[in-house]
């Protein structure tokens, strides 16, 4: 089977690019980390790719708010190439800082504010995928993975309309860690190919990575989410 080429985009301060590359490799893609400067110098690298990942981290140290600087760079320099990628129906995922970036570029609805606790939190959460337009979460069983963020509280002016449009892709199940509106953990764009989420499914791609594995109460692998995206990129 062909391995779709996935570009993992990394800006200065991105730090989960290697984790998500490892996950994509396991899920059957051919990941390649592309530094932001390389993309800005040569936006054509997007043409050969079938998938795009905006990876997590602290791009530009969260200066002026998480994701702000990176989204400015993207929107002002390669905005057309990005919207073209999406218009072709190629799957895009933004994780954590990548989610923050995609909301600020306008590719995804809503915004991400400071956690209700006022500080960075690292803990495991359970996610469920309601019926939605999102190609990454179609028939996705519930999964467990960590969050690691300080600005992950999802806000949106009209969450009911968002849900009605099929754009709520993931919800926190059981425990909402950051005060996100309506327990929203991830949303997609109107076409369903762009997903943004705060949690890190890339850190639960092996059973050994689950904290309760030895207790026999480990939940679903985050790997499944990447497998859905890879399958979509392959079959599209």
């Amino acid at each position: 089977m062909t391995r779709p080429q996935a570009i993992v985009l990394a800006a200065p301060g991105t730090n989960r690019d290697h984790d998500v590359s490892f996950a994509l490799g396991l899920a059957g893609a051919e990941p390649r980390i592309v530094l932001l400067a390389e993309l800005l110098a040569n936006p054509a690298v997007l043409r050969d790719a079938q998938m795009l990942v905006v990876a997590g981290g602290f791009s530009y140290a969260d200066a002026l708010g998480a994701g702000r600087m990176w989204s400015l760079e993207l929107a002002h320099n390669v905005g057309d190439a990005l919207t073209g990628f999406v218009a072709e129906g190629k799957p895009v995922i933004g994780i954590c800082n990548g989610f923050q970036v995609l909301t600020r570029t306008g590719l995804l609805p809503g915004a991400l504010g400071h956690n209700q606790s006022g500080s960075f939190q690292c803990e495991w959460v359970r996610l469920e995928a309601p019926a939605s337009r999102c190609v990454w979460t179609r028939d996705l069983p519930s999964l467990e993975c960590p969050i690691a963020h300080g600005e992950g509280r999802y806000v949106h002016p009209d969450p009911d309309a968002l849900a009605a449009a099929g754009q709520v892709a993931l919800r926190y199940e059981g425990h909402n860690p950051n005060g996100s509106l309506d327990d929203i953990a991830g949303v997609c764009d109107e076409s369903g190919v762009v997903l943004g989420l705060m949690p890190h499914p890339e850190n639960h791609v092996l059973p050994r990575q689950h904290p309760r594995r030895a207790r026999g109460t480990a939940g679903g692998l985050g790997l499944t989410l990447f497998e859905r995206g890879v399958a979509y990129a392959r079959e599209r």
Partner: peptide, 23 residues
């Protein structure tokens, strides 16, 4: 305190600082 620190990045922390039924 421990929750303020990312102990998950790199996916290599097999035994974490917080463990158990309720972590």
């Amino acid at each position: 305190v421990v929750r303020r620190y990312d102990h998950e990045i790199r996916g290599a922390t097999v035994v974490r600082p917080l463990v158990g039924a309720e972590h």
